[in-house]
Amino acid sequence: MHILLNDEPHACDTRLTVAAFLDQQQLLAPGMALALNHQILPRSRWEEQILEEGDHLLLFQVIAGG
């Protein structure tokens, strides 16, 4: 199966959760936020959200400030 992560193509197993995919890529870290197909996906759903063919993930570092 193929997905895009930050506009880069990646192959991954089917029935893989967002959290499992990020863990495989060594990108599962505190302070990260994620959009799945252009919609923010709450971190509480990363363990249950199954990736689908063609999904587009945008992973970014959350920065607080004024």
Rank of each mutant, 00 (worst) to 15 (best):
I3P: 01
I3E: 02
A64E: 13
P9M: 13
E52I: 10
H2I: 13
F60Q: 10
Q49M: 10
L59C: 05
T17P: 08
Q25A: 11
R15I: 08
E8R: 11
G31F: 07
P30S: 00
H10N: 12
D55C: 07
L51K: 08
M32Y: 03
R43A: 12
I40P: 10
N6S: 12
L16Y: 03
Q39K: 12
C12H: 11
G31E: 02
I63H: 04
D23F: 06
L5N: 09
L34F: 00
L58W: 08
P30K: 07
I3L: 15
H38Y: 11
L41K: 05
L22T: 01
F21V: 12
A35G: 05
D13L: 10
R15C: 15
R43N: 11
N6L: 08
L27T: 07
D7F: 04
H2D: 15
M1D: 03
Q24E: 15
Q25I: 09
M32R: 04
E8M: 07
W46Q: 01
R45C: 12
D23S: 13
L57N: 03
L51I: 08
A19G: 02
L51N: 05
L27F: 04
L51W: 01
H10I: 11
P9Y: 08
N6Q: 06
H10P: 02
H56C: 15
Q39D: 12
L51T: 01
A19C: 00
F21I: 11
Q49Y: 09
D13P: 14
P9W: 05
L51R: 02
Q25T: 06
V62R: 11
Q39E: 13
L58F: 12
A35V: 06
L59Q: 07
C12D: 03
L16R: 01
L59R: 00
L57T: 10
L57S: 09
D13M: 10
L58T: 13
T14Y: 14
